[in-house]
Design a protein around this nucleic acid. Sequence first.
DNA 1: ATAAATATTTACCGTACAGGATTATGGAGA
DNA 2: TCTCCATAATCCTGTACGGTAAATATTTAT
Lengths: 86, 86
Amino acid sequence: MIILPNGNENMKRPCTTQQIGVLVRTTRKSQRMTQQDLALVSGTGIRFIVDLEKGKATCELAKVLTVLHMLAIEVQLIPPKTGDAS
Amino acid sequence: MIILPNGNENMKRPCTTQQIGVLVRTTRKSQRMTQQDLALVSGTGIRFIVDLEKGKATCELAKVLTVLHMLAIEVQLIPPKTGDAS
DNA sequence: ATAAATATTTACCGTACAGGATTATGGAGA
DNA sequence: TCTCCATAATCCTGTACGGTAAATATTTAT
C-alpha cells in the first residue's frame, strides 16, 4: 500500500461527472441521436442532457442511470475484495 | 434480438438506485463504518447517507460517486459495442 | 463557398425538492 | 442504565429541472 503525496492511498481514481458527461455525449453521437431524442426516450428535458454532458455535479442519480441505460451503457459496481477501506 | 413481454428488448437491466443503496450499506457495514463515519469522510451530511442507502432517486450524482469511492467501490461504465441503441 | 436546415447552448422563470443542521425517538448491546 | 447506531421530523437555504425562446454552432445541400 502506497501513501501518495496528497494523502490518499493507492486506490483507483474516482469516477467523475466529467467522465460520465463525455461518455454520454460520445455514446449518444455514435448512436446518431440528438440531445432531444435522448431526452425524449429518457423522460427528461433537454436541459438535463445538456447539463449531464457538461459534467454537472448535481444531476439526479436516477435520471443519470436512466440515460445510461437508454444508451446501453452498462454500469458495473465492483465492491472491494473485503479488506480495503477508506 | 428478443422482445420481452414488457416491451423492452433484451438489454441488461438498468442499474437502480435501490441496488446502489443496498450495495453502499452492505459495503459500509463490511468496513465496520457507521453512517456518520461515511458521511464525514465523504464530506456529506448523515441525511445524505441515509437517503442514499434507502435508494432515494434524486441523490446528487457527484456525492454518490464520492461515497462509492470512499468505500472503494469501483465504478465501471461499459459503452455498447457500437451498434446497439435504444 | 454560401445558404439553409439542424443541433447545441444559454438565459430566464417558477415550482418543487435536496441536503445540512439539529432534535427527538427507538433499538441493540455492554 | 448508559452508550452507540439508525431513522425520522422540522426548518431553511440553495438549486435542479422543465419549458421556452433566443443566440450559436454545426451539419448538409446546392
